[in-house]
């Protein structure tokens, strides 16, 4: 009973890293904590001692009402924080450069395009010609590069056990590079507030051996559902991935949540972090066309803007890439 409370189901945090970046972040956290303690522990220890020693009843002849400066003490007071901060600044500089989320972590990274929607993530594998909703499958040991945008308001994609987070913003792209060193599952989610269903916008990252990865991709290619303009417009409606299943024509089976196995459409309705949706992706330019939507020179309307309460999938078509009129 108790251990169900203390045990996180999947790698939820960078305190349980499953990749080298999160591991380096954890090490840096420890370093920062220890270094800062050098400066603050003296203050925390001194206060009770001072209060005790100089309490009114007992201060007696230790009372020195006019004492208000001391050069040596002054040097120490400025010196200690300066030294601590100097040391920390050095490590801050180097680790920030080293853990650049834009830097590819090796040759030939797996390129995945990510579109943030209300309240689900769409992961496009253009080369493999498959896509997953709220499910990310990556091969262990191979660098991964996510290129992200949002097709609604700003979001923030975080995979704690692997790398951390970066915003995904409409009409813009950002990148997040990571590599999974351990096989297993990690939690990914949107951390930026985006309205009613934001806290359901979570997904599982499966880090799997290469052969299993190939197998899952192959299975996804057999999916009965295709990601095209029509199904994309349905996904873009406000709602979680679970809620999108019925309009997509997926039968949601009741039953225990199976997190292993392939990303299939089987999921229990009551489990909020259910299984993702695997889709075929015959048209790999969807990502670019989502970006193009905001650059045609034609203003968005409540009917065409995903995230708007009056969004209407029937009216919101994605423009062809040739419609782009503006550069940003």
């Amino acid at each position: 009973m108790l251990d169900s409370y203390l045990q996180l189901a999947v790698a939820e945090t960078f305190l349980q890293p499953t990749g080298p970046i999160a591991r380096a972040q954890l090490d840096h956290l420890n370093y920062v904590v220890i270094l800062t303690c050098i400066a603050i522990v003296p203050a925390l220890v001194a206060l009770p001692l001072i209060l005790f020693r100089y309490r009114r009843k007992k201060a007696g002849d230790r009372y020195r009402p006019n004492w208000d400066s001391n050069l040596g003490l002054e040097v120490a007071m400025w010196g200690l924080p300066i030294v601590v901060i100097f040391l920390m600044a050095i490590s801050l500089w180097s680790i920030t450069q080293r853990l650049d989320p834009y830097e590819e972590l090796g040759k030939d990274p797996l390129e995945i395009k990510v579109i943030g929607l209300d309240w689900k993530w769409v992961f496009l594998y253009p080369e493999e010609k498959v896509a997953f909703v709220d499910e990310l499958i990556v091969p262990v040991g191979r660098p991964v590069e996510l290129e992200m945008t949002s097709d609604t308001v700003m979001q923030s994609l975080r995979i704690s056990a692997l790398v951390g987070q970066i915003y995904a913003m409409p009409a813009m792209t950002t990148k997040l590079n990571f590599i999974a060193s351990d096989a297993g599952e990690a939690r990914g989610m949107n951390t930026q507030f985006t309205g009613r269903g934001m806290w359901r916008q979570k997904f599982l990252v499966h880090s799997v051996p290469t052969d299993e990865y190939q197998q899952r991709i192959a299975e996804a290619r057999q999916s009965p559902i295709t990601l095209n303009e029509q199904t994309y417009a349905i996904l873009a409606q406000q709602g979680t991935a679970e809620e999108a299943k019925t309009p997509l024509g997926i039968t949601v089976l009741e039953g225990p949540l199976e997190t292993q196995g392939t990303a299939t459409v089987v999921a229990e309705r009551d489990v909020p972090v259910g299984q993702g949706i695997a889709m075929r992706l015959p048209e790999p330019k969807i990502f670019q066309r989502v970006l193009a939507r905001y650059k045609t020179g034609v203003p968005m309307t409540p009917e065409t803007q995903p995230g708007s309460p009056s969004y209407d999938p029937a009216k919101a078509s994605l423009p062809p890439l040739t419609a782009v009129r503006m550069e940003m």
């Binding site: 203050a43 001072i50 209060l51 100089y54 009114r56 009372y63 020195r64 001391n70 200690l80």
Partner: peptide, 22 residues
Amino acid sequence: SIPTGVKIFDWLATLWGGRIRL
């Protein structure tokens, strides 16, 4: 955080040698 830390030390030093009305 440097000037902020200094201030904390300064307040502690102000209490040091005083007669504190707890």
